[in-house]
Amino acid sequence: MIDTHTDGPDTPAVRARAVSDPDTLDRLHERLAAAASRDGLLDVAYTSVDTPVGSLLLAATGTGLVRVAFESEDHDLVLDTLAGRLGPRVLRAPARLDRAARELDEYFAGTRTSFDLPLDLALSRGFRHLVQRRLAEIEYGDTWSYARVARLVGNPGAARAVGTACATNPLPIVLPCHRVSRADGTLGGYAGGPARKSALLALEAGVRTGPRSGDTG
């Protein structure tokens, strides 16, 4: 085919010159997230943070933090589920998760032993909700058996159901289901896998056994 415009750019080349640069798109995205938050348009705001147990997805509704997910849960899949259950207006909006991210930083630095965040337990129902809500009563560095948690919620025979409630905890770390293990002292399951569960317990044990290097008081 003879191109009558051989001296100049052809159509694909013209099209290529129209492509937007990533910096501009990032800046526009940030502006959109700010405006959407201001106007209360988001069903879910999210971000991801790097931690010693890998990348964590943090998601919040207008009520509070609604989901913490490990990398092994597949963040894209988790976002799909959130869109289906809470609404499709899901946007990356890191500023909305600043406080949660900061508290998690402090937790992993060993300077925070409990979380002070508004939470939204919209993703759980019934007995699971009841159990998850009370997990925060288990103190930092402590471990409880599933049966003890079952007694705490007034249902001593429900140790197995407590296990399910822990496994489906939408807010791991913040609601410390990692502090619940089997009566025989073995670890029990964990949404993030057993390695992460023991890493969290080791972190909490380490801080408890004495001052860390660099501590001043």
């Binding site: 937007s20 959109l32 879910v44 976002l79 959130l82 869109a83 499709p88 899901v90 946007l91």
Partner: peptide, 14 residues
């Protein structure tokens, strides 16, 4: 099921 809006921005923002 509708995909998260983030993916719409990601795909069509440019």
């Amino acid at each position: 099921m509708k995909q998260p809006f983030e993916r719409v921005v990601d795909e069509h923002g440019d």
